[in-house]
Amino acid sequence: SEFQINEQVLASWSDSRFYPAKVTAVNKDGTYTVKFYDGVVQTVKHIHVKA
């Protein structure tokens, strides 16, 4: 599913667990740039983002 900029989502971290994050960019290659609550910004594949 498509997510929008500033949408609150759950994004997987390197430990494969999902954490609350905010979408900061929707990228043309189908990835999302997300910002976790601790301030870390990461680009993740769409399969690693869920509502």
Rank of each mutant, 00 (worst) to 15 (best):
V9D: 01
I5Y: 05
K22L: 15
D29S: 01
I5W: 04
V9G: 01
Q42K: 15
N6V: 04
V34H: 00
Y32P: 00
V44Y: 03
V9S: 01
V44R: 04
Y19N: 02
Y37P: 06
E7C: 09
V41E: 12
T31P: 02
Y32K: 00
S16R: 09
Q8G: 06
N27L: 06
F18N: 01
S16Y: 07
G30A: 01
Q4L: 10
N6R: 03
V44I: 09
S14V: 11
P20C: 14
I47T: 15
Y37D: 10
S12E: 14
D38F: 15
V49I: 14
A25P: 00
A51T: 09
N27A: 03
L10V: 06
A51I: 09
Q8L: 14
N27V: 01
V34Y: 02
Y19S: 05
A21M: 04
N6K: 04
A21T: 02
G30V: 03
T33L: 07
D15T: 04
V23L: 05
A25D: 04
V49K: 15
V44S: 03
W13T: 07
S14N: 14
T31E: 02
T31D: 02
V26P: 00
V40P: 07
V44E: 01
T33I: 08
T24V: 15
Y19A: 07
V23H: 00
I47H: 14
K28M: 11
F18K: 00
V49C: 07
N27I: 03
Q4G: 09
G39F: 06
T31M: 03
W13Y: 15
V44F: 04
V34R: 00
S16A: 10
S12I: 15
N27W: 08
R17W: 08
T31A: 03
F3L: 04
A51M: 09
S14Q: 12
S12C: 15
K50I: 14
H48L: 10
Q42H: 12
H48M: 14
V9E: 01
A11V: 15
I47Q: 12
Q42S: 11
K22Q: 13
H48F: 14
D15G: 15
T43W: 05
A21G: 07
S1F: 14
D29A: 01
K50F: 09
A21W: 05
V23N: 01
D29P: 00
S16Q: 10
I47L: 11
D15S: 06
D15H: 07
V9T: 03
W13I: 10
G30E: 03
Q8R: 09
H46W: 13
Q4T: 11
K45T: 11
T31Y: 05
G30N: 05
A11W: 02
V23A: 01
V41G: 05
H46C: 13
V34D: 00
G39R: 05
A51F: 09
E2Q: 14
F36W: 06
K35D: 04
K28F: 10
K35M: 15
D15A: 03
L10W: 13
V9A: 02
Q8S: 13
G30C: 07
K35I: 14
Q8N: 14
T43D: 09
V49A: 08
A51K: 15
Q42F: 11
I47D: 14
T43N: 10
R17V: 12
Q42W: 13
S1G: 12
V34E: 00
A25G: 10
W13N: 07
S16V: 07
W13Q: 08
F3D: 01
G30W: 06
K35Q: 15
V44L: 10
V40H: 14
P20H: 06
Y32A: 01
T43A: 05
F3V: 04
F18V: 04
S16N: 14
H48R: 11
K45P: 13
T31F: 04
G39H: 05
V49T: 05
V49P: 08
E7P: 01
N27G: 06
I47R: 08
S12A: 14
T24Q: 09
T31I: 02
V44T: 03
V49E: 04
A21C: 05
S12N: 05
V23E: 00
K45H: 12
V41Y: 09
S1A: 12
T43S: 07
F3C: 06
T24L: 15
I5V: 13
F18Q: 01
T24I: 15
K22F: 13
V34I: 09
V26A: 06
R17Y: 09
S14D: 13
A21Q: 00
S12Q: 15
D15N: 09
F18S: 02
P20L: 11
V9W: 04
T33R: 05
A21N: 01
G30K: 04
G30L: 03
K22H: 10
S16E: 11
Q42D: 06
F36T: 03
V26Q: 04
F3P: 03
N6M: 06
I47C: 13
P20S: 05
V34L: 06
A11L: 06
E7I: 11
Y37F: 13
F36A: 00
P20T: 06
V9R: 02
N27T: 04
V49D: 04
K28W: 10
K45G: 11
K50D: 07
A51S: 12
I5S: 02
T24S: 06
S1V: 13
S1H: 14
F3I: 05
D15Q: 04
H48A: 10
K28E: 13
S1P: 13
T33D: 10
K22D: 03
R17D: 09
T43Q: 07
L10I: 07
V44D: 02
D29G: 04
K35Y: 09
R17A: 10
T33C: 06
V49H: 05
Y19T: 03
V9K: 02
K50L: 13
D38H: 11
K22Y: 13
Y37Q: 09
V49Y: 06
Q42G: 11
K28C: 08
V41D: 05
T33F: 04
K50Q: 10
V49W: 04
V23S: 00
K28S: 13
T24P: 00
T43K: 10
I5D: 01
V41H: 06
F36V: 00
I47M: 12
Y19R: 07
Q4C: 11
T33H: 01
A21P: 02
A51W: 09
Y32T: 00
P20K: 06
K50W: 11
N6A: 06
V44G: 03
Y37M: 12
R17H: 11
P20E: 06
P20F: 14
A51H: 13
H46L: 12
E2P: 12
I5C: 06
W13H: 09
V41L: 09
S14E: 10
I47F: 13
K45L: 14
H48D: 12
K50H: 09
F3R: 01
Y19I: 08
K35V: 14
W13F: 12
Q4K: 13
G30D: 03
T24R: 02
W13K: 15
K28D: 13
S1D: 10
Q42E: 07
V44N: 01
T24D: 02
Q4E: 08
E2M: 14
V44Q: 01
D29Q: 01
S16C: 14
H48V: 07
N6W: 10
K35W: 09
E2H: 14
S1K: 14
V41A: 03
E7Y: 04
A21V: 04
N27S: 03
H48K: 13
Y19P: 00
V26T: 03
V26N: 07
V49R: 12
V49S: 08
